[in-house]
């Protein structure tokens, strides 16, 4: 579904991502984890064609993003790390606008948007300007915008940011349902490792622009030699930031 092969990207002298290779199969949720600045967002943007690779290739459902970006984008639903919405539109106007951009059939649009608005408890607020929304409400609009056109691949950069527990639960269940029942592939980035552990079928850990580990949670535990540990310990161990006692001690003074 998604094939990223030897993707490399530099910003000036800084190499943000180096020779990253991974894939997202249909019907799987793949977690892309890593410390701040590891290259997660750059990788996700490259999949959308927002960032041009210096080298390497990215294919979405067989479409090379560099050659056929429109065909690739048509299949993707994307939630950016910090959704910048058009705040002078109402939630309904924004979602209608997004539906037009993706060519969503007018007859199914109303029902589908309505379902999502009710499911995420935004119904009743959709005719208010987005500028008056809370951060969580804006995140819900961004999520609906990513899901409304039946994408076959979801690129979700911190999608649960600011969501209340009920909505976060709904989103997680929707993702599970989409992958199991509809074969949607999901690339999911989060800093909340409990969430990654709970919903991801496969984990990729990026550190300083390179893949340092890839596999199921169990495989990563084995690799880190931390059988029985949580993903947090495994993550800290694999990214070389395991012993933080000095930092904690200094900050506690």
């Amino acid at each position: 579904m998604l094939e990223v092969e030897r993707f490399t990207k530099s910003y000036g002298p800084v190499r943000a991502v180096s020779e990253v290779t991974f894939s997202v199969p249909a019907g799987q949720i793949v977690g892309l984890l890593g410390p701040n600045g590891a290259g997660k967002s750059t990788t996700m943007k490259a999949i959308l064609g927002l960032v041009r690779p210096d080298s390497g290739s990215i294919r979405v459902l067989g479409h090379d993003v560099a050659i056929a970006p429109i065909e690739a984008k048509r299949e993707i639903g994307y939630v950016p790390e910090s959704p910048s919405l058009y705040e002078f539109l109402t939630g309904a106007e924004y979602l209608d606008f997004i539906s037009d951009l993706y060519g969503l059939d007018p007859s199914t649009r109303t029902g589908r948007i309505g379902q999502f608005l009710r499911g995420l408890e935004l119904a009743g607020h959709e005719n208010s300007l987005i500028s008056g929304y809370s951060q969580g409400m804006k995140q819900k609009v961004a999520l609906i915008a990513a899901l409304v056109h039946h994408p076959r691949l979801l690129i979700l950069d911190e999608p649960l940011n600011g969501l209340d527990p009920r909505s976060a639960h709904v989103v997680k269940e929707v993702l599970r349902s989409l992958t199991r029942n509809d074969g949607v592939g999901v690339l999911f980035s989060t800093h909340v490792l409990e969430i990654a552990q709970a919903i991801c079928d496969h984990i990729i850990i990026l550190h300083r622009g390179s893949v340092v580990a890839s596999g199921t949670v169990e495989a990563l535990r084995d690799r880190a030699g931390l059988a029985g540990s949580g993903l947090e310990d495994v993550f800290l161990s694999l990214t070389g930031t395991g012993d933080l006692s000095d930092v904690v001690q200094a900050l506690s003074k």
């Binding site: 959308l48 064609g49 927002l50 429109i70 065909e71 984008k73 048509r74 993707i76 994307y78 950016p80 910090s82 910048s84 919405l85 058009y86 997004i98 951009l101 993706y102 060519g103 915008a145």
Partner: peptide
């Protein structure tokens, strides 16, 4: 910053 909405869309 909302320009990325247009960039991510199939247009």
């Amino acid at each position: 910053r909302a320009l990325q909405t247009l960039f991510a869309a199939p247009i």
